[in-house]
């Protein structure tokens, strides 16, 4: 799919399937406002991503991105609310927000990460995809690939470390 057509398709999905995408986020976050924020954030991130690669199944892709961003945000909220309970004790150090909407996506970084993932051995890439994009636990990935959880843990570390090396290399 060429870039123009793909962009039009993304616009179309975020207009005509917005309710469905909000529903995906809502199931995870339990708040319509937060779900709406996440869908908007997914739109911004995917708009940037569409310059870097094209997607075969855009609706499935958009749903997956919304779902993953919603999960990331929910995890981050749990962290922050656990700290909030502590706040009266006055020992909090400002921790940079890792909430997905606070993380900017730029094309060059995405290109580097895509290249880094392409360089991984097939099995490592598969393990990482199942874990990251597929949202499976390390144990589930191990079962699917027929390897030990320890090996899966190593493969995920390898994948992220290799991406880090490529992203911050200059």
């Amino acid at each position: 799919m060429d870039a123009c057509k793909w962009r039009a398709e993304i616009e179309d999905i975020f207009v005509n399937h917005r309710a469905r995408l909000c529903c995906v986020a809502m199931r995870i976050l339990g708040s319509a406002d937060q779900a709406d924020d996440i869908v908007q954030d997914a739109y911004l991130k995917i708009s940037e991503a569409q310059a870097v690669f094209s997607i075969r199944q855009p609706i499935a892709y958009a749903s997956r991105v919304v779902r993953n961003l919603a999960i990331d945000r929910q995890r981050r909220c749990l962290f922050e609310s656990a700290l909030f309970k502590e706040e009266e004790q006055g020992e909090l150090v400002a921790v940079p927000s890792g909430s997905p909407e606070a993380i900017e996506i730029d094309r060059q970084a995405l290109e580097r990460v895509v290249r880094a993932l392409d360089e991984l051995p097939d099995r490592t890439r598969r393990a990482f995809e199942l874990y990251r994009m597929g949202g499976h636990t390390q144990r589930e990935v191990a079962e699917q690939l027929g390897v030990s959880t320890t090996l899966v843990n190593f493969m995920i570390r390898d994948a992220l470390s290799h991406c880090r090396g490529c992203l911050f290399a200059d």
Binding site: P96, G98, I103, A109, V113, G134
Partner: peptide, 20 residues
Amino acid sequence: REAFREAERLWTLTGLVPPK
């Protein structure tokens, strides 16, 4: 903090890459 920030950024970036 810097290492964790990098890890979270990579997590977000890799979450946008479609499966091969």
